[in-house]
Design a binder for these strands. Structure first.
Length: 139
DNA sequence: GCCAACGTTGGC
DNA sequence: GCCAACGTTGGC
């Protein structure tokens, strides 16, 4: 299983809204960046990801699961853009802030630190384990 | 709200 | 195919 990270501004689409969608999940639409799209195309059913609040919050607040693999983004007719569906799995017991991640030497290579602007990122197994531990949350 | 970083666009 | 201009992202 692979791990990922999804960024969203909480006032546009936050963790609470994602949770409210329940098991049905929601399209992760609106991505207009090739690298982010390619990451979504690589996702498999059952892969998990961190849900990160950008701009406001600046912390990982929960864990989501891919519940539909890449399909055309319903918010555009442009065939270039695909998206996946994700559903909330569980919240972080303790949210893990960007500052904490930057302060952890073992996470120095994380995309969140290295590729700040990429909105859908891969997370390594090791990074996943470390961040879950920092958040007192089961991996 | 500012602005640096970065991706995309389009003229040549 | 280069690169300047432009738009967007996101931390601060």
């Amino acid at each position: 299983m692979a791990y990922w990270l999804f960024k969203s501004e909480p006032d546009v689409w936050g963790w609470d809204k994602q949770v409210a969608k329940g098991a049905a999940g929601e399209e992760w639409d609106g991505v207009r960046n090739y690298q982010a799209r390619n990451n979504m195309r690589a996702m498999k059913l059952g892969d998990q990801g961190f849900f990160y609040h950008s701009r406001q919050g600046l912390e990982i607040v929960g864990i989501v699961e891919i519940c539909a693999e890449a399909h055309p983004d319903s918010t555009t007719d442009d065939p270039r853009w695909d998206c996946v569906d994700i559903k909330a799995l569980r919240p972080m017991i303790k949210p893990v802030s960007l500052a904490q991640i930057k302060a952890e030497p073992r996470l120095a290579e994380m995309s969140l630190v290295k590729s700040m602007r990429l909105s859908v990122q891969p997370v390594t197994d090791e990074e996943w384990t470390i961040v879950c531990a920092m958040g007192d949350t089961a991996p």
